[in-house]
């Protein structure tokens, strides 16, 4: 499909480095965890998760995201998608645990809301560097129990999401979902593996997307050859055992770079 023109209708500042861009276009068929390719014309096209049916939540890190931060209401971007495999939605009465780090909250907030709407019992661990960088605190607390961690202790517990995770009764959860920096997810993976909970877990991965439609192979994982843009970005924990996850990824040229 050609990019759809999406007009920015509202911009919400979530933290000093993170903003939510609402569009006049709504992607109602999208499931939580699916992504869209956002074309910042004249600069680049980059993958972003849908944080609402009609919005993306962006951390400013480089060229395209910086250009996006210069856009205002009334400006537009091109959007293709939604694409990829999202999270498995829990059923009524399921107990789920959501572990979100930084802008990793973007795919997890709609998941938590969707789960709560379906009658699941939701617990969230939300972590960030400091109080200012906590994203979607209210969305998560509106869906159930919320544990907060910050690296500097400016809000909630001082420490990492993994510190809070270790203290929860993991066998009590039917499903565990996580998204955040890969170093964080790798620690979460280790804890879940030790607890025998990998089968019940889902991880939302980031890799360099080139075509974004499952053809070029730039985002393939070792050793399975699964495509993050098509077979993912959400993977079951058992699919990641013995994989490159937590160890290395590939640059735009395909060279391996350490995590």
């Amino acid at each position: 499909m050609r990019p759809v023109n999406a007009l920015i209708t509202k911009i919400v500042k979530e933290s000093p480095s993170i903003r939510t861009f609402f569009f006049d276009a709504s992607f109602d068929s999208a499931t939580p965890g699916q992504f869209v390719m956002v074309w910042v014309r004249g600069v680049d096209e980059i993958p972003m998760t849908l944080s609402y049916k009609n919005a993306i939540t962006v951390q400013k890190v480089g060229d395209a995201t910086s250009r996006l931060f210069e856009l205002g209401e009334g400006d537009s971007v091109g959007i293709r998608g939604p694409s990829g495999k999202g999270f498995t939605l829990p059923g009524k009465g399921d107990r789920i645990l959501v572990v979100a780090g930084g802008v990793g909250a973007a795919p997890l907030a709609p998941l938590a809301e969707c789960a709560e709407g379906a009658g699941a019992e939701v617990t969230t661990i939300l972590g960030a560097r400091n109080a200012d960088e906590l994203v979607f605190k209210n969305r998560f607390s509106g869906t159930g129990i919320l544990h907060i961690t910050t690296d500097d202790g400016s809000e909630g517990r001082k420490g990492f999401v993994t510190d809070a995770l270790r203290e929860l009764d993991l066998p009590a959860y039917d499903r565990i979902y996580t998204c955040g920096p890969e170093v964080m997810m790798a620690r979460v993976f280790d804890i879940l593996q030790d607890a025998g909970a990998l089968e019940r877990s889902e991880f939302s991965l980031h890799r360099y997307f080139k075509c974004g439609i499952g053809v070029c192979g730039a985002c393939c994982m070792d050793p399975s050859g699964l495509r993050v843009c098509k077979d993912g970005p959400v993977f079951n924990g058992t699919q990641l055992v013995g994989s490159e996850f937590g160890k290395y990824k590939r640059s735009a040229s395909g060279q391996r770079v350490g995590i």
Partner: peptide
């Protein structure tokens, strides 16, 4: 994939569209 003499990151995206 076609392999060349030096690492190359390719053109900016969008790089493939249906």
């Amino acid at each position: 994939k076609s392999i060349g003499p030096a690492p190359e990151k390719g053109h900016p995206n969008p790089s493939m569209v249906r």
